[in-house]
Design a protein around this nucleic acid. Structure first.
Lengths: 250, 250
DNA sequence: CGAATTCTAAATGTCTGACAATTTAAACAC
DNA sequence: GTGTTTAAATTGTCAGACATTTAGAATTCG
């Protein structure tokens, strides 16, 4: 930290990087107070607004928090799972939408990862997780449910499945894959027959976890993967057909 | 966008959130130019430094890029896989180090996810991936290698395994788990016997992918998981023993 | 007429200085 | 001692200015 070579990059970016590196390398523990803005601007030999821009960059990455008043200042922040989750989900979602990832790729990734959790979840899931899954299955069976709510419930179901593995690192990594898929899933229009099929598979998964049968859960998840992929293909084909044919309604 | 209620939060944070939401909700496509700082400061009725702080926040999240000069300004940025990877890895690493995640949890997550990739990788891996894996295995067999280099090579090996699945979404999600484990792995002191064992398992994995045998790969990965967990436990026990006994060297 | 050069304007990057708002802690009165 | 007041430190915000970079228009020259 503290050094600042003659580079072409923005000063605020350089300063932010310098402080960020110090935090990441463990040179500053959680809740350590950074020097005040005035002190930093002296150390780096820049003006206070420039220092402030650097600090705002770090704040945006949840690396520091700031406090006003005497004995206030910027403090190294403990990155909470909650913050990391939220960050990961928005980044994943953005990545998928901005890079036009196709349904097949995203779907394959999501279910591959979920199948990695299922064996652990079968052993460790608590009654709470099972109750959540049952509740979501029941919600999915309601006839009047909108497609969007159905997808919400789907995410909640799978979330419970993943959380059942009782491994926060796994939950964190999975959150990105599961939640980021939602916009793509929302493009599917579900028929009553589709929902019946999915609810049936969800029930089989819940039953398998209930009975602590990893193999059964895996089989059901494999079928769900195949079925979801098929639905996705149909939805994409229908969309492409609509795009190819000129709009007849206007 | 554009609205800004009387809230207690920082103005720059509110403005950043407002613009961020607009980008995430797809209201602004990639490469769309944002209004200039002067225009934004008028729209939000704040000063230019405040607007700048908001823009720096967005830049820190890779949501925008800025260009100087006439017809310059801030543009919505396409989030590249590369950026997302780097971001994800630092966040994951920080999350693990700041929250004192135990070796067992991280290790379990990592290998569970890798085992999800192995079946796909067995089918899709290219000769390039195999060559990388063989090269890293060879590197790991060198006698003079430091523990740290051994871990580096280990990460590269597993990275090739994951990339072999030919699914960028999967690679992205996995990168966090695999790379974030490295600091924890680096705490292990490997004996010659340990390395021999690991190299043997790596070879079995590479062979299995070479022969497109998912089942063999899975078995070898399971054994590697168990062995790594065991090494981790021993390392942690040794460390705890050192910590419990007063230092005798000083 | 075309091409190279120069000029200009727009935009971000940075600085200075100031004031407002907030919070802690010391000083003070009772 | 306890409660109140005051002062100081620190971040949040603003205004105005200048520097730097860049694209494009204007100009000049072959």
């Amino acid at each position: 930290m503290k050094i600042d070579p003659k580079s072409s990059a923005d000063l605020s970016a350089q300063i932010a990087k310098s402080i960020r590196d110090a935090i990441i390398n463990g040179e500053m523990d959680v809740d350590t107070r950074l020097p005040s803005e005035a002190e930093l601007s002296e150390q780096f030999d820049v003006s206070r607004p420039t220092v402030r821009e650097a600090l705002k960059r770090l704040a945006a990455q949840n690396l520091i928090r700031t406090q006003r008043g005497a004995s206030g200042g910027a403090f190294v922040r403990r990155l909470s799972y909650q913050d990391a989750y939220a960050n990961h989900i928005t980044t994943s979602t953005l990545l998928l939408s901005m890079n036009a990832v196709d349904f097949e790729t995203a779907c394959e990734a999501r279910y591959a990862l979920e199948r990695a959790c299922a064996p652990l979840s079968a052993v460790r899931r608590t009654p709470d997780h099972l109750a959540t899954m049952r509740a979501e299955i029941h919600r999915q069976s309601q006839p009047g449910l909108s497609d969007e709510s159905f997808c919400d419930s789907d995410v909640a179901f799978h979330r419970a499945l993943v959380d059942g593995a009782d491994n926060p690192v796994l939950s964190y990594q999975l959150a990105g894959a599961v939640e980021a898929m939602q916009p793509l899933m929302n493009m599917i229009t579900f028929t009553a027959r589709n929902r019946e099929m999915i609810v049936g598979l969800h029930t089989r998964i819940a039953d398998a976890l209930d009975e602590k049968e990893p193999a059964l859960a895996d089989t059901a998840l494999a079928e769900l993967t195949a079925y979801t992929l098929q639905l996705g293909e149909e939805a994409m084909a229908a969309r492409d057909a609509r795009a190819a044919k000129p709009d007849t309604t206007s």
